[in-house]
Design a protein around this nucleic acid. Structure first.
Lengths: 253, 253
DNA sequence: GATCCTTTCGGTACACCGTCTGGAAAATCA
DNA sequence: TGATTTTCCAGACGGTGTACCGAAAGGATC
């Protein structure tokens, strides 16, 4: 009656391990389980992360994993929080760094992070409220303080910047993830698609804007592997808009 | 040897049904299957969409579904494309509508669309190349033509706007989706989390930016149900940035 | 050292999933 | 009528997450 699952969930996330020292000792630490899960997800996506395979990696019985995590979803939550640990330190604005440069650098950092762990973008649920996720969010708020925005505006500006990077990262990395799942390589997939698609299915008159941009070269070098150009452009435009509001509101710095 | 799976996939998406008229007639059309799948996903999320349950909804054997769709993933692709059909018509800029107003309206429309079909945000793979998805994308390119941007800039601007809305929608609707999955209602989930969290786990000195914004009211009315204010603000800032570039480049209109 | 207590270990089992198989059923064509 | 073509669908297979529960292994106490 005293253990609600919600508290247990957060307890795990915040490392409130009992660790009484009594009873049979565990052959494995929670850190090891999470690290093995991270390695598996980074290598083959979240779908390669089955409890049986993970237990085999660790040389442990399947159900032994459940002494450290309450469920597979709980494990994924721990993995996500742990993954963000690698990036939170470098995310805070440096001393004397202008707010716009700091925000742009954060966007690049988050972009690179998602490129390394694309499986985090895969599932639709919100990020778990773990210490490192919170640290990441906290860092994103920092550049927008004391630049002449109201509190709500600052919060929204940071959230939107995160969402912009997340959305772009999702669009660009999902191809790689999908190719790994289906086993069809990225390159042959797109080349075969492109070879067949435009001739056979595409009817130009139905899609005038795309057709025009296509012939004007709007999609060159951007279709297969989404590079960082689009990120810089989008973040730049967004921060320009924020800068407009800052000066309009009469903010300092 | 003539039927590659890729072509088959696109054939389904583009409605190249054979329909010879011979053989035993199907008790069900592909439209019915897709509609039933949409109803199920809208009601209970993608996880409630099992082939067995869907077949039971239609009063049909499980394997009969596979005469219309090649796999569950293929069915989801059809569902996504079909879902976008409800929104593509109103998405194109109207006659005489300024590009900025058209883009803002598109963002609102897409936002509402994702609120109605949050499961589309759930899986990480890119949108299927169906006729309605392409129409949606085509419409998003339209406002950014002929405003003084290069082709690449126009394409990137449209893609980024879509990604911004998608990212924000994902952040705000994932809560509802998650609550439906876990069975814990949205409201009691967040109230219990908030009641326990801030007192028990949160250590203010570790998260200075969030703490400041919290006490300054930056999160008021925005935490539980993300309303449209953040969307309008973010899209407004982004389009302001685009407008800056337009005039900087010396574009017309 | 013997006993109790507490904790982890892990084999087994269950429900559920997507989908392959293959024979039966039902329509059209010759 | 017979041949052909297509759909229907019960059953089975290998996969998943995880509940159950006795066995095992350490510390604490006597």
């Amino acid at each position: 009656m005293g253990d609600e699952p919600l508290e247990h969930h957060l307890d795990l996330l915040w490392g409130r391990g009992s660790a009484t020292g009594r009873g049979r000792p565990a052959r494995t630490t929670r850190e090891q389980v999470v690290a093995a899960g991270l390695a598996r997800a980074d290598a083959g996506g979240l779908e390669e992360l089955s409890m049986r395979a993970l237990a085999a990696d660790l040389g442990v019985g399947v159900m032994s994993l459940y002494t450290h995590v309450e469920s597979r979803d709980g494990l994924v939550a721990l993995m996500i929080d742990q993954a963000f640990a690698e990036v939170t330190d470098g995310l805070y604005p440096r001393a004397g760094e202008p707010w716009r440069a700091a925000a742009a650098r954060q966007a690049r950092t988050l972009w690179g992070f998602y490129a390394r762990h694309p499986w985090i973008l895969g599932q639709g649920s919100r990020l778990p409220m773990g210490p490192h996720v919170l640290a990441m969010e906290d860092a994103f708020y920092a550049p927008f303080l004391d630049i002449g925005l109201t509190a709500v505006e600052s919060a929204n500006a940071a959230i939107a910047l995160r969402s912009l990077v997340t959305g772009l990262a999702r669009d660009s990395t999902s191809e790689q993830d999908q190719s790994r799942r289906t086993g069809v390589g990225l390159y042959e997939y797109w080349s075969s698609i492109n070879a067949v698609f435009w001739d056979r299915y595409f009817e130009q008159e139905h899609y005038p804007s795309m057709t025009r941009l296509w012939y004007e070269g709007g999609f060159e070098g951007d279709d297969v592997i989404a590079e960082e150009g689009i990120l810089d452009r989008a973040v730049g435009a967004y921060l320009d808009g924020i800068a407009t509001r800052v000066t309009r509101t009469g903010g300092p710095s």
